Computed example of a mutant assay.
Amino acid sequence: MKREAGGDSDRAGEPTRPVPAARENGAPGAPRTAAVPAQRPQQSPGAPRPTGGAPVRQGAPARPGAPRRTGARRVRLTVSRIDPWSAMKMSFLLSVALGIALVVMTVVLWTVLDAMGVFDQVNGVIGQVVESDGQQFDILDFVGFTRVVSLSIVIGVVDVILFTAIATLSAFLYNVSSALVGGVNLTLTDD
């Protein structure tokens, strides 16, 4: 085998493969072959390039002779520490969302009960049971819209403060107990 003259200088160290050449003078017999550099297979831009030796096969095991896993992978992790600052921020945001949901739920519930005439029926029942001299009982004096909404806002603010403080304190307590017993073990799968 001989190498073609005038080949690319950057392909000097690449492996070669025989390529049939044209027959000389139409003489019968075996065709003459010439060695030319082997062409590289086309790779996508993001694919890993082989560093030398055997080409990289997609889906091949990382180590030769290693068994290929067929089921879901399982990873065992340990939660060893919770950052109190992040626990406080997350609990604050979640408790604010719950407080807003509480106020909206209270407004919707009061509006639905008023539209159904529940307050008028309660006034009629209590008026029949407790009849006093000239005074009429009105339940809206106790559960009026402004009173109910303001009470739900106060409860929401108290909940925000309590939930934030409890979550931060819980993070501190978890860190102390995790230092003693090692934390919570979790097993995660990629099903």
Results as ranks from 00 to 15, higher is better:
residue 118 V to L: 15
residue 118 V to G: 09
residue 118 V to M: 15
residue 118 V to K: 12
residue 119 F to D: 10
residue 119 F to R: 07
residue 119 F to W: 15
residue 120 D to V: 13
residue 121 Q to W: 10
residue 122 V to S: 03
residue 122 V to K: 04
residue 122 V to T: 12
residue 123 N to K: 06
residue 123 N to P: 01
residue 124 G to M: 14
residue 124 G to W: 06
residue 124 G to L: 12
residue 124 G to H: 07
residue 124 G to I: 03
residue 125 V to C: 00
residue 125 V to D: 02
residue 125 V to Y: 11
residue 125 V to L: 05
residue 125 V to K: 13
residue 126 I to W: 04
residue 126 I to D: 00
residue 126 I to S: 05
residue 126 I to K: 00
residue 126 I to P: 00
residue 126 I to Y: 00
residue 127 G to F: 06
residue 127 G to M: 01
residue 128 Q to L: 06
residue 128 Q to I: 02
residue 128 Q to V: 02
residue 128 Q to E: 06
residue 128 Q to Y: 10
residue 129 V to Y: 00
residue 130 V to I: 11
residue 130 V to H: 00
residue 130 V to K: 02
residue 131 E to R: 14
residue 132 S to R: 03
residue 132 S to Y: 00
residue 133 D to P: 15
residue 133 D to A: 03
residue 133 D to L: 02
residue 134 G to N: 08
residue 136 Q to A: 05
residue 136 Q to F: 02
residue 136 Q to Y: 09
residue 136 Q to P: 03
residue 137 F to I: 14
residue 137 F to Q: 08
residue 137 F to R: 07
residue 137 F to S: 03
residue 137 F to H: 11
residue 138 D to M: 09
residue 139 I to M: 10
residue 140 L to K: 13
residue 140 L to T: 11
residue 140 L to E: 12
residue 140 L to F: 05
residue 140 L to D: 08
residue 140 L to V: 04
residue 141 D to A: 15
residue 141 D to R: 15
residue 141 D to T: 14
residue 141 D to L: 15
residue 141 D to V: 10
residue 142 F to K: 06
residue 142 F to L: 11
residue 142 F to H: 14
residue 142 F to S: 08
residue 143 V to F: 15
residue 143 V to Y: 12
residue 144 G to K: 09
residue 145 F to Q: 02
residue 145 F to V: 02
residue 145 F to W: 13
residue 146 T to V: 13
residue 147 R to G: 08
residue 147 R to A: 09
residue 147 R to V: 11
residue 148 V to C: 14
residue 148 V to M: 11
residue 149 V to F: 13
residue 149 V to C: 12
residue 149 V to W: 13
residue 149 V to T: 14
residue 149 V to S: 03
residue 150 S to Q: 12
residue 150 S to W: 10
residue 150 S to C: 07
residue 150 S to T: 15
residue 151 L to T: 13
residue 151 L to V: 12
residue 151 L to R: 14
residue 152 S to R: 14
residue 152 S to T: 15
residue 152 S to C: 09
residue 152 S to L: 07
residue 153 I to Y: 10
residue 153 I to T: 06
residue 153 I to R: 04
residue 153 I to N: 02
residue 154 V to C: 01
residue 154 V to M: 11
residue 156 G to M: 11
residue 158 V to H: 06
residue 159 D to H: 06
residue 159 D to C: 05
residue 160 V to E: 03
residue 160 V to K: 01
residue 160 V to M: 12
residue 161 I to H: 04
residue 161 I to C: 04
residue 161 I to F: 12
residue 161 I to L: 07
